[in-house]
């Protein structure tokens, strides 16, 4: 099976290369980038075949492509892939507007290609364990969640993460979608309302997007949930940030930290503690699912619609932050 990578705008593309190469029978057939110099640089660094244009990559007939361009530029690449009947794994958030997010889903449905959203938390071993306990009934009825997806200012990876047009916003756009997806997955219920407050106190003079964000989401089944999306972690915190949630049920609560499986390293070189993750590689499991879904000709366990639903909540959060009241989704 041949998989290609479209764009290195998102730094996850680099991890996906290693993930693809770890799967037997899968070939990283090529990479392309709208910035050819960048594409060539990464192709060389990872010893991957380089195509000068996306058209050329698609013409080589890969079975699937992973789209890692900036958030606002997903749609045109998805359209190109779908037109060539090539399956798509799209970085999150799948788009920065509702129209684009719907179009991403529609164009793949019409072309009959698989569309998967890159929500790696679905493949986190601790989160899957809690999902299994929930489904077994041992936790009883879920009442609410208290979630955090906090991080450092992501500019150390790529500057565009704080560009309002390319990223579609700041902390809210960056960090709403993972937890919304987890909650939808756990609950089997859709978000119907969101309230949000944002501010720009961290990095106030460096960026033009919100860096602090708190949301309260209500689901169809009555479950309510908060998400802290803030870019509040200083650069000298032991890691980039994290994802946690407390799930409160009639039996009590389960507190989950998706990135707690670390060793702590104190080294002269760093002059501060560093957490190095030893938990299972959820990206690897996610890429394997994309490959398996293509092989089996079935829908992946995380779909484009999942990506669309999460974007809807993030966009509604911006509406709420503007009016200061909850808004319906």
């Amino acid at each position: 099976m041949k998989i290609g990578i479209m764009s290195f705008a998102h730094h996850h593309a680099e991890a996906y290369i290693a993930n693809l190469r770890a799967i037997s029978g899968v070939e990283l057939c090529g990479v392309a980038d709208e910035d050819p110099a960048r594409g060539q640089r990464f192709a060389q660094a990872y010893n991957a075949p380089f195509f000068h244009t996306y058209e050329a990559l698609l013409a080589s007939k890969p079975d699937g492509v992973i789209i890692c361009t900036e958030n606002s530029k997903h749609l045109p690449l998805v359209e190109m892939a779908a037109a060539s009947k090539i399956n798509v794994l799209c970085e999150k958030p799948i788009a920065t507007t509702l129209a684009d997010a719907k179009a991403v889903v529609d164009v793949c449905a019409r072309a009959g290609v698989l569309l998967m959203t890159a929500f790696p938390m679905r493949f986190s071993a601790p989160l899957m364990e809690v999902k299994a306990r929930l489904d077994s009934g041992e936790l009883g009825q879920v009442y609410c969640f208290n979630g955090t997806n906090q991080g450092e200012l992501p500019t150390k990876h790529r500057a565009w993460f704080v560009d309002p047009t390319l990223a579609g916003g700041g902390a809210i756009m960056d960090h709403t979608v993972h937890l919304v997806d987890i909650m939808r997955w756990y609950l089997g219920s859709e978000a119907v309302e969101v309230y949000a407050q944002t501010n720009k106190i961290f990095h106030a003079n460096e960026v033009n997007v919100e860096t602090g964000g708190l949301e309260m989401i209500t689901f169809q089944n009555g479950v309510f949930a908060t998400i802290d999306t803030s870019w509040c972690r200083p650069q000298y915190w032991p890691t980039w940030g994290g994802l946690t949630f407390e799930m409160v049920t009639e039996r009590g609560a389960v507190i989950v930290d998706g990135f707690k499986q670390n060793i702590t390293i104190y080294s002269h070189a760093n002059q501060r503690p560093i957490w190095q993750y030893w938990g299972s590689d959820m990206n690897q499991a996610m890429i394997s699912e994309f490959v398996s879904a293509i092989r089996d000709g079935r829908e992946p366990s995380v779909t484009g619609v999942d990506g669309l639903r999460a974007v809807e909540v993030a966009l509604a959060a911006y509406d709420s932050a503007r009016v200061g009241q909850p808004v319906k989704i």
Binding site: C144, Y195, I201, T226, T249, G252
Partner: peptide
Amino acid sequence: FAKKITTANPNAPVDYGLAILKHRSGAI
């Protein structure tokens, strides 16, 4: 802005409240 379990589930065996405050200073 606040919610708690017992608003919609008055007979729940537990309670849990979540609140988001906006301060006049801009902090949340």
